[in-house]
Design a protein around this nucleic acid. Structure first.
Lengths: 348, 348
DNA sequence: CGCAGGGATGTAATCGATTCCATGAACGAA
DNA sequence: TTCGTTCATGGAATCGATTACATCCCTGCG
């Protein structure tokens, strides 16, 4: 593969001049520029990004460590991240942690070894020593979707509180009183927050959230199946299962179907994270939709701001409820039936 | 960030010695090795992969250019590719072409600039000049899923012919006679092959494949919707729509539903590529499943063989039909009804 | 006419590793 | 004792770029 020296020789100039025209430095004569460009063309020369990075100490590459590539939510996120990065002149390297802290660390380390300019992470856990060191060590870093409390890193995420409240209102309006949740790992912010938001919303309606109705999942389909099974084995099974992500909802659907039961007739189902497939499932699944594309773009902008020395901004966007049929027939247009009882409302 | 010089200074040895212990070269005294290791530990030193790559002319990185990250098929493929690569000591950088040849070229170029050791591609088109040059230029390269005819590059793919024949048998057995296909881009091998296989299988049953029943899609959901719409507008619409990939099947489902029609009652649907969601759609979709995981692993092995100087192997695996409910009630266990008429059969 | 200033260009240092080659020490054989 | 090996180590070249600095030439002004 041709190097800058070959180009210099071909054009009859020094490597410095070649480098100057490549980086369009002003003081190059029109003549020299033309000869260099011709040589570049003739040799099919492409600058070696490795060598350039070594010298300039920047790779114009961003690392993105996501929790699970098989999850359409993260895949959508990855896509918008790559698009925005490309628009800003950066490439992105994706690492898939598969919800395993070890794998996550592996990818962070490998990305750091490659000297990426900045890191976008959606942590699978509460923060390994490596992650903490990296954050403190001055590597530009932004958390997206999930974050680690107590670490001074900008966070770009969606707030599902209001949407969860809307969901509970919807369920209450439909007459459901026994609501259960398939939670994500407590070590992740999204894992614990969604349970909290759910609990608070239930409280507004005077509804309890017994421990038996909190199932511990890990954001992957199999755990949704398992937890839903234990729910269904209960003496008094819940009327609704709320899965804290789309994959666990899929598992829940499997578990219900495996028993020959129907959604929403025998049990209702709702999910956090909306994805195109939910329109086509049987029945279409009521879900809380995050503004995934905007999340990815905002995260990249924050990270690039950091890299280029501008102050980065944490961003919180709102999620919203998308009602479909998995919880029963949609509520009547008048929303009065969904109002919480007055007494409980005032105590919240 | 600490460099090898810092480690050398800390350990009181030369950089050469540090490099030797890092690459466990045999002739280093136990004493020196211990001191270097201690220094590495103390400084939290990690070798700069950029510098190392420049010197050794290898990055231990594979490039993977896929046609569409939002397609679960490719996402599953990407995952298995990354796993196998990791097992063999390589990282992978994924580029998403989004079915656009320009974007595909952009990623290939960017990967080449980064001096990846080898390239895995699932081409979106018949081969840009860049792609052809790259293949000829000696960069280790393997095609996966789709390939470009006439280019001397190993191919790892699934052969769907037999499964398509099984599908047609299934449809014929169910009494369907007017079968249509939503094809992929003719420039892709999977686009044209699936149509051909379908046409041949129909011929075995004496069924025609009129032009009006061949819709031109682009492997993305929206095209499935559009094509299905034109099918439904026909004076004599088909009884079955076979989508050449899962995303177009999704679009077809949308189109059918938008008209208030039901699958399979009003029209039957089948898809190429099976994905977990098809179990949960309404109705569950009959599909042709590829051994995606094995495909990804075989592709990586072939590519690494090439990189490391061993002769690479093209691999073709079989796809298989998974019958669900989207084409009508499953055929009776006795498969006799699905036999093609004798006369036609002998001509095939 | 002489000199300052600025534009075009080249030489060489540099980034952080790997690796060839030279050197010196230790040791066994003659 | 001396010589030839072998082992451990360090010095320095090298990979392919970028860039500080030096040089040379031209132009314009006093």
């Amino acid at each position: 593969m041709a190097s800058i020296k070959d180009v210099a020789a071909e054009a009859g100039v020094s490597v410095a001049t070649v480098s100057r025209v490549l980086n369009d430095h002003p003081s190059v004569s029109a003549d020299a520029r033309a000869r260099v460009l011709a040589a570049v063309e003739a040799l099919g020369y492409r600058p070696n990004a490795v060598a350039r990075s070594l010298r300039t100490d920047q790779t114009r590459t961003l690392g993105l460590v996501i929790s699970d590539v098989l999850n359409p939510y993260f895949t959508t996120l990855a896509r918008s991240v790559e698009e925005e990065a490309r628009a800003l002149g950066y490439s992105v390297i994706i690492g898939n942690a598969d919800e395993q802290p070890d794998l996550q660390d592996h990818h962070v380390r490998s990305l750091l070894d490659r000297r990426i300019d900045g890191l976008l992470v959606s942590p699978t856990d509460g923060g390994s020593p490596l992650m903490l060191d990296t954050a403190r060590g001055g590597t530009p870093m932004v958390f997206v979707d999930r974050w680690i409390p107590g670490v001074d890193v900008p966070v770009v995420r969606a707030d599902g509180r209001a949407a969860v409240r809307d969901l509970v209102a919807h369920l209450y309006g439909l007459g459901h009183r026994r609501l259960a949740i398939v939670a994500g790992p407590a070590a992740t912010t999204t894992g614990s927050e969604r349970v909290e938001a759910f609990r608070e919303a239930l409280a507004e309606y005077g509804l309890p959230l017994p421990d038996a109705y909190i199932g511990q999942g890990d954001f992957q389909a199999e755990s949704g199946r398992r937890v839903t099974d234990t729910f269904l084995d209960l003496a008094e099974p819940p009327e609704v299962v709320f899965a804290a992500d789309n994959l666990m909802a899929l598992g829940a659907l499997d578990a219900v179907r495996a028993r020959g039961m129907r959604v929403p007739g025998d049990i209702a189902l709702a999910a956090f994270d909306d994805i195109p497939w939910f329109v086509h499932t049987d029945p279409p699944v009521t879900a809380i939709a995050q503004p995934t594309g905007e999340l990815g773009r905002a995260a990249v902008r924050a990270l690039v701001d950091m890299i280029e020395g501008r102050p980065p901004q944490s961003v919180t966007l709102a999620a919203r409820l998308v009602v479909r049929r998995s919880c029963g027939e949609p509520a009547a247009p008048t929303a009065t039936s969904a109002q919480p009882p007055v007494t409980n409302r005032s105590t919240s």
